[in-house]
Design a protein around this nucleic acid. Structure first.
Lengths: 224, 224
DNA sequence: TTTCCTGGAAAAATCTATTTTCTGTTCTGA
DNA sequence: TCAGAACAGAAAATAGATTTTTCCAGGAAA
């Protein structure tokens, strides 16, 4: 009996959303969710309220909750913002980072590199998603600003949702592993400009991959 | 019968927090709040959960909710981040802004300038707080990025809380009205660098005023 | 014949009252 | 003085009651 029911429901629901188990704009019925997690509607409501404030879910008063929508325009906007924030974090982390930061980055990269990116069924493996998130967090951590990290986390989470939605198109057709390695090397070498350039390219590539997958999915559903 | 009970409770509680009716780190007892708003504990819990995700309230599992703490370090960090975001919005708004933007800025400034800053009892007047928020929002609006506006809003709200906490020290000892006028003039003249400079100074002045008031308050409570 | 409006039933969201569980404190006995 | 147990207060969860919305059928008008 670790956490409270609400906490558990929140975490499971959040994980499900990030894993793309629900379609964007899909209605989230409170009673169904309550049944599947075997908790009361009240607990579900509280979890949904928190997710609403995070932006993963949108609330429609008296009409329940829906999964937040996605769009190419939103993805581009999100990525622009991520490039701004991530590069700013990176600059400050490279300037401020101490040995503990270097150690954490090396450790996180080692784990990321050693974790298989996909499971047998073609999805991103949860372990890789976790290691990937931790790697980028470790890089940014030394920026020394709690607010910057908070905004960064917010944006990163939303990107993860897009990543999962577009996972089918991202199997092996780009060398993310190389980009991560180069990112680490530039950061440890304190080569700020190079690290920023790689980060910018990395985020741009991610956007392009997701965008292609999104358009393909949209075209498919339109043709159906 | 306008909105739902939860919505009403959320809005009232949020307004109370921003108005500084509760002290930082003060415990928010669910039953008390429920009694004062005459709604059930469940509705209060949901409102508090949303405020938690916004960062105005912190949750302590099984031990209820507290008002988020404040500190000089947090204020400095917050202001650094605000300067980054607000200037970025401003640059883009000046580059993109059309006639509708100019019109909205002029209108918002006129209202701000014509609204008394304080009420008789020395607090900021709610009307001024509203007009002030709307003015800064109008300036940033034309940046053309929903995510940027969202992050900006988040930071602005937290700053408003600090502003209210420090309101006693801000009576007449700086010329915020002049700063706002100059900001508008530079933006309308499309003088990007001047506008950015004024904005940076404006936010820095705000921080310094709040910081002085915070330290005075802390010293007072320590001496008591 | 098609489209639009109206009435009612069913489903879903929301709220309240109650029960259960947990935490922090105080009291008792060694 | 300290350890342990009982107690009080508060938070969290649940279940049921209430209100609101949505869906569908039937009928009237174009």
């Amino acid at each position: 009996m670790s956490a409270s029911a609400t906490q558990t429901a929140y975490e499971q629901l959040r994980a499900s959303l990030l894993a793309g188990l629900y379609q964007p704009e899909e209605k989230l019925k409170i009673s169904e969710l309550g049944a599947s997690f075997s908790v009361s509607p009240g607990a579900i409501r509280e979890a949904l309220a928190r997710l609403t404030a995070e932006g993963l879910v949108i609330a429609m008063p008296q009409r329940g909750f829906r999964v937040a929508p996605v769009s190419v325009a939103d993805l581009r906007d999100l990525t622009d913002m991520r490039i701004e924030i991530e590069t700013k974090c990176l600059r400050r982390a490279i300037a401020n980072g101490d040995l503990a930061w270097e150690t954490a980055v090396v450790a996180a990269h080692h784990r990321l590199a050693a974790t298989p990116i996909a499971t047998a069924d073609g999805r991103f493996s949860p372990a890789w998603m976790l290691a990937h998130g931790d790697f980028h967090t470790a890089l940014a951590q030394a920026c020394g600003s709690a607010w910057m990290m908070r905004v960064r986390d917010l944006l990163f989470v939303h990107n993860e949702r897009y990543l999962e939605l577009a996972r089918k198109a991202d199997r092996g057709n780009r060398d993310a592993a190389r980009e991560h390695r180069e990112l680490m090397e530039a950061a440890l070498a304190r080569d700020t400009e190079r690290a920023v350039t790689i980060m910018t390219v990395h985020l741009g590539n991610t956007r392009d991959t997701i965008e292609a997958a999104l358009l393909a999915t949209t075209a498919m559903s339109a043709a159906r």
